[in-house]
Design a protein around this nucleic acid. Structure first.
Lengths: 191, 191
DNA sequence: CGTTAACATGAAGATCGGTTCCGCTTGACG
DNA sequence: CGTCAAGCGGAACCGATCTTCATGTTAACG
């Protein structure tokens, strides 16, 4: 059910839209979700009005970003499902890979951390993410490498904590998300 | 170096101050640090002006709360140092105890989670907390029950994640701070 | 080239939450 | 009881942000 686009976007409008999206991604990555619309407009080299022409609300912009980020995460996990080899290795390497990707982007960390907004729009991405993760977890458990009582919800919880730690670290807190992950992953492992 | 109080507080003023402190604690516990001054005043049954008479700033109010909370945490850890018995048992039971105490109070969770503000005022509490925790960790390691590479900073990181997870859970997120703690503590344990 | 609908702009508007301040009230004290 | 400084109330103020809108600009198309 793709939406029919009654009118194709004008050339300059399309260009500006892309500039806005890129600027928003950069601003959010650097300052987190509280980045200001005016800053985004400035980075994009357009007026705030233009931002609002393409996205009715700042939240819509965040939503778009959330969809992209969660989609990317889902893609990474789904790709891991194709890999062959030690199930625990695949699982932990995948977690590290996704965490490393997210850690450099404050907004991404905040979204993973479970920021209330934008959750709805990214719902389908979250679904895919959860489904793929469930398979990954199951395989690790079948291999006897992961505690049997672990569920996808636990992974989500762990990653929620990760997002917060990573965001805080980037904001200057004396924390270390890599230490966090090492400990958490060890906690997931079978004894 | 106790501050000399040039004028003892008037009776009604002292009463009001206490009401404000209690109301603030309740409001913050329920709504987190973003609880509004007006709400605090309403709960206390006073005007906002009265709140500001006793605390020059909302931040000062948060600071006072932070000092109290971190002091309480430090007290709990210090009390644990007096206990005799299995070092790991003492350590993990203490973590559970502190976490359980904090989990019912959104603001407390947020403070543990590392909310930027109020950190300075509670510095001494944090110091005590860190010192006592260091001893607890060291003992658990001497007993061979905790991984040798774990440091106080790791505990702080873990608890930072805990604070966020617990706060999010209280805000309605489908998370479980107990599961989080179980996994994290297992990750700290020696293999 | 002319027409026009789409688009861009950024100052002004709306809102929200912390903070101030002035007029009124009240506890303290002789 | 009278005086008055301390204390109180809460409407008004202020700064920060998101959002709108009236006006000017430009791509698209014949």
């Amino acid at each position: 059910m793709s939406t029919i686009s009654p009118r194709p976007l004008r050339a300059d409008a399309r260009r500006n839209r892309e500039k806005v999206v890129a600027a928003a991604a950069a601003a959010f990555a650097e300052s987190g979700l509280e980045a200001q619309v005016e800053d985004i407009a400035r980075r994009a080299g357009v007026g705030v009005g233009t931002v609002y022409r393409h996205f009715p609300t700042k939240e819509a912009l965040v939503d778009a970003l959330a969809v992209a980020h969660f989609g990317r995460l889902a893609g990474m996990i789904e790709a891991a499902l194709e890999e062959r080899g030690d199930a625990w290795e695949i699982f932990s390497a995948t977690i590290w890979r996704t965490a490393t990707a997210a850690a450099g982007d404050v907004a991404w960390c905040e979204l993973i951390g479970g920021h209330p907004s934008a959750v709805d729009a990214a719902a389908s991405g979250r679904e895919r993410l959860a489904a793929a993760t469930a398979t990954l977890v199951e395989r690790a458990q079948r291999a006897g490498a992961m505690r049997d009582d672990v569920t996808v919800a636990d992974i989500r919880t762990i990653m929620c904590g990760f997002g917060h730690v990573a965001a805080a670290q980037r904001a200057g807190a004396p924390l270390d998300w890599k230490r966090y992950l090492r400990i958490a992953l060890d906690g997931l492992r079978a004894r």
